[in-house]
Nucleic acid binder design. Structure first.
Lengths: 124, 124
DNA sequence: TACTCTGTTCGAGAAAACTCGTACAACTAC
DNA sequence: GTAGTTGTACGAGTTTTCTCGAACAGAGTA
């Protein structure tokens, strides 16, 4: 599961991005775990929204506009990160999420197309 | 063995197959539910085995060779049928399962390829 | 009749997931 | 400093799922 990425001063992206929060490596991703993470409509919505409406940007929890308590959202985003579906980075006091699209396409080709075609139910 | 039961009633297939047990219609299949059903390694194994090793035959629970109590297997097969992943037919005292491959390919193209590529863990 | 074989249903206990309130931490702005 | 914002951590209650034993049902067979 989530590997502690060692010290607080490690490799950053070329654009000096904040560190990634702990997450499983691409080779460690398990299909069962990914399916379990996607079995919840709210999480499916998160992933689909990140896929369809993210253009080179990461998004905060608030961006999604879910009407749920903060601690519930923390739970769902953490589930997605632990399953390897999203990256998360700490930008000051905001935590921004991004789909691991390349990793998922490499490991599970076709999965994201399934999610793209999904019809979300009426309620959020 | 696979004797067509004594005309218990309604419409049978052209080859006089036993009736299908209740299952969701193709249009009713929900991606969340399918993902939930596939989140369990045992059920993923069942589906994959049906996909790879079924050649025009349906298979009984016993065919899979799982070392689990019968009531546990009933539970997992029922979960798969309720989610719409398999058909089940009653052949006398055996209940035979078959992958809903056409339905799944129509409704969720690419899903079965994901399962085909899955590497089952060491334990059953 | 009795026995076997396949698989179901019921029920209970254990484990996991979901929900959410509360308290807390960190950063920004006044 | 104080207040507001974003989000975490903890814990409890609720719900769901998993697991499995026990009892049962139907078909076939000796």
């Amino acid at each position: 599961m989530a590997m502690p990425n060692s010290t607080s001063s490690r490799t950053k992206g070329p654009a000096e991005l904040p560190d990634l929060l702990p997450e499983p490596a691409t080779e460690e991703l398990k299909l069962e775990t990914v399916f379990a993470a996607l079995a919840d409509p709210l999480r499916l919505t998160i992933v689909r929204k990140l896929m369809l409406e993210s253009e080179a940007y990461d998004h905060t929890c608030g961006w999604f506009g879910f009407d749920r308590p903060k601690s519930s959202l923390t739970h769902h985003f953490r589930t997605l990160r632990d399953a390897g579906l999203i990256h998360q980075r700490q930008y000051g006091l905001e935590r921004r999420s991004r789909l691991r699209a390349e990793d998922l396409n490499m490991r599970f080709p076709g999965l994201l197309e399934l999610i793209r075609a999904w019809q979300p139910p009426s309620n959020v």
